[in-house]
Design a protein around this nucleic acid. Structure first.
Length: 484
RNA sequence: GGUCCGUUCGUCUAGAGGCUAGGACUCAAGAUUCUCAUUCUUGCAACAGGGGUUCGAUUCCCCUACGGACUACCA
């Protein structure tokens, strides 16, 4: 055996990747990579009643999309397979029986509806002192049974957590947990320990919700006489409720699965960047990271004990930063499906449109709403023409737009620079400021108070015919409005 | 109820006995801009409370309060 670091991510195939789970995967990945170790994927599907079709594919897709490549796993193989627990089911019984033989576990024949056993001491420990003869007899009768861990009644169990420090627990507060279920399958708690050992996992990285059951795992390692792994427990991720209270991050707080966030237009690298900052700090003022940078900077000493609250606003900002860092070409490609401009007159102008959009969207899904006015001019209120700062009124707007239409009709070169020069000199000859001229033009072209791009950008994108048509419509609306 | 864990601006966090308690997001104001956004400047805003230890505590110890996790033949 070598002393190379081995970490694992062991999700259950539930059908989606919760952001908290992904954060655990990320930290396990980062720790392995930062230590030049190996990152292993293991599927924990011992609960057969909870099987979800296609769920393992979602796990593979997520890890691939997020860039968390595993060195061993069901899909890539490895020397410690199989990497799916249901394919390992036959090996767990042997270990459970080994513990029974050692006196570290025992058969329990309690049934779930056995009120008598429950009322006395719970099912826990009820069968703990059955004699060998009694056990043999029950087994011979074909009584269903489970195998329970025999937790010491005295003493304390403690370990040195790399994040939480030394934690000690009195053994008598621990339950004799079930290791092997009556259907012959191991419980998560048991399979987890067996597999971690068999797969040579050196550092167990998981959420702090496992902190209180960890003593039981440690006792199992001891019962087997196995070498203890190191433990890195991670703080929880919470969500903020509308009333300001904090609770476990769930759907009521918004999208909480990786795929839902991606569909919403968040970039995988931004999601990774953001969740890395939840419970970990690089201890510098840098906030935007690539995955490679995270690998270089990651350290367990920067991991927190206290839980963090998922903040969509900050995720928006992180995402916008990653968007701005992309090249114009890359952004144009990624954003294109959201725009719906394919096979429209706008298609040829997409590069230009995308360059205007890039600094203006927090997430890709915003592209749709921000480009809608280009495809079709929506209904708008003529009040928008009235702008105090530009001394813009119905009358001035009509006059300006009519002049602009005239100037555009004569325009030969339909590009931003030529359009700007034409309109700029028009403003001069009309004796008004540029802003006073561009304001009503932009309103007539877009019907919006705020647009991606200025008046000349929009003129260029819409083209002469559509632009003039929208300007004429504006004049028409203004004339009607000033009569009323 | 029991066990364990946690507590710095609204949120993410820096801080590891002596700092005007720093940064980021959000929000507000201003500058720039043919709108908006970007960018830049400025501002609002925190050490849960009480005891110790110490010349001196955000920092170390204890207690309280509050919050959370676990307490399944779920993972």
């Amino acid at each position: 055996m070598s002393d190379v670091v081995r970490t694992r991510f062991a999700p259950s195939p539930t059908g989606y990747m919760h952001i908290g789970n992904l954060r655990t995967a990320l930290f396990a990945f980062l720790y392995a990579r930062s230590q030049e170790g190996r990152f292993i994927l293991r599927i924990e599907d011992t609960d057969q009643g909870r099987y979800v079709e296609g769920a393992t594919d979602i796990i593979y897709d997520t890890l691939r999309t997020a860039g968390l490549h595993h060195d061993e796993g069901p899909d890539v193989g490895g020397d410690f397979g199989p990497y799916v627990q249901s394919q390992r089911k036959d090996m767990y019984r042997k270990y459970a029986e080994e513990l029974v033989a050692k006196g570290e576990a025992y058969y329990c024949f309690c049934r779930r509806d056995d009120k008598e056993a429950e009322s006395s001491e719970g099912y826990n420990r009820h069968c703990r002192s059955l004699s060998a003869g009694q056990v043999k007899e029950q087994l011979a009768q074909g009584m269903p049974y489970v195998i329970r861990q025999r937790i010491p009644l005295e003493g304390t169990t403690s370990w040195d957590d790399l994040v939480y420090g030394t934690i000690s627990v009195d053994n008598r507060t621990l339950d004799d947990q079930i290791l092997l279920k009556s259907d012959g399958m191991p419980t998560y708690n048991f399979a987890n320990v067996i597999d971690d050992h068999l797969m040579g996992i050196t550092h167990i990285i998981r959420g702090s919700e496992y902190l209180s059951s960890n003593p039981k795992y440690i006792l199992l390692y001891r019962a087997f006489g196995w070498e203890m792994p190191r433990y890195i427990h991670l703080p929880l991720i919470n969500g903020q409720n509308p009333d300001g209270t904090i609770s476990k991050l769930s759907k009521r707080h918004g999208a909480v699965s990786f795929q839902a966030l991606v569909e919403d237009g968040y970039l995988p690298e931004a999601i990774i960047n953001y969740i890395a900052l939840l419970g970990w700090s690089p201890k510098s003022e840098q906030e935007i990271f690539s995955l490679d940078e995270l690998v270089k900077l990651f350290s367990v000493t920067g991991v927190h004990k206290s839980p963090a609250v998922f903040d969509y606003k900050k995720l928006d900002w992180v995402n916008s930063q990653h968007i701005v860092m992309m090249s114009d070409e890359e952004f144009a490609d990624k954003a294109r499906p959201y725009a719906g401009i394919d096979s429209t007159p706008l298609e040829g102008k997409w590069t230009k449109i995308a360059s205007l959009l890039k600094p203006r969207v927090n997430k890709l899904s915003e592209v749709a709403e921000k480009t809608a006015f280009l495809k079709q001019l929506g209904a708008y209120d003529t009040e928008m023409y009235i702008n105090k700062k530009n001394k813009s009124t119905f009358e001035s707007s009509i006059r300006i737009i009519e002049n602009v239409i005239g100037a555009l009709d004569a325009e030969e070169q339909w590009n931003e620079e030529a359009l700007y020069n034409t309109l700029s000199s028009l403003a001069q000859s009309l004796g008004i400021k540029e802003g006073q001229l561009f304001w009503p033009v932009r309103i007539a072209l877009s019907g919006l108070m705020a647009t991606p791009g200025n008046a000349t950008d929009i003129l260029f994108i819409l083209g002469k015919e559509e632009s003039v048509s929208r300007l004429e419509k504006g004049v028409e609306m203004l004339k009607k409005a000033s009569l009323a």
